[in-house]
Design a protein around this nucleic acid. Sequence first.
DNA 1: ATTATTTATTTGATATATCAAGTATATTTA
DNA 2: TAAATATACTTGATATATCAAATAAATAAT
Lengths: 146, 146
Amino acid sequence: MIQKTPTGTVLYTIEQTIKEYRKICQRNIQKIADDITVDQCLVLIILNDNTTISQIDIAKLIFKDNASVTRIIELMVKKDYLTRETDELDKRKSKLIITEKGKKTIVLLAPVFKLNRKTALNGLSLDEIELLDKILHKIISNCKTS
Amino acid sequence: MIQKTPTGTVLYTIEQTIKEYRKICQRNIQKIADDITVDQCLVLIILNDNTTISQIDIAKLIFKDNASVTRIIELMVKKDYLTRETDELDKRKSKLIITEKGKKTIVLLAPVFKLNRKTALNGLSLDEIELLDKILHKIISNCKTS
DNA sequence: ATTATTTATTTGATATATCAAGTATATTTA
DNA sequence: TAAATATACTTGATATATCAAATAAATAAT
């Protein structure tokens, strides 16, 4: 199954790629805040841009299960990056509010995320990146409609 | 840089792609054996092709941590896909032997893996797949040397 | 208004990811 | 050959992934 041709291996290369990328992300993030993970950072940035977003929509944005998002947020509350209140308009929902610590962290994180992307995509042309994106979306659509 | 999602660039699309692919893999595998995971299947197939491989080398092949491999194998022994013996030539190592149940499963799995790949890569030309592979390896190398 | 259904989130169980520290054996060095 | 180092693997702690089942609140149907 692990063959030499890209046809047999490219899907594993995709997995390898994202793992290597997450490694440099985590490394660079830890220089700034050593009690936060890549996924927690993503949630923080999403909440910063969408203050009223629901957990379900967060899950969709970062391709995670609702259960995972619940637990990620739980830890972020514990670490004082977020506070959580019941939404009075719809009591099933939570209002997630970024704390001062969270806000400070976001300011520090922005350049790190930019650098991570720049590092990973270094030497690739815009055309190549667009093509990569196109091919990946084709694979996603193949999997979803199967 | 392509902003498909608030957080996102093509690097998140890579993550999404592998998640969708793993989903169809798991779905198709479960039709055949409902007590085995995608990762356990990979280990099984690797052991089938390399009967004397060490856990460390398995880890390298599937881009996993040694600790993860230890636990994956533990579960496979528990489920009677493998047996484990101490290697008498080097007592630090384990000899991993595929059981009858494991062998039967491999036979059933081979066409499933083929189908999974075919489904995911459907409609992509060989050129596109080779280009995808090339770009991904460039990203991996960017991350590793950073 | 009561019941049925849907929606948002949580919880439990199990698997994997990652790092660091630990154990046992093997190999190298002094 | 004893001590130092390296190797193969395990274990512990914490985070995330996934599915299924459970809550609880909102909405739709009767």
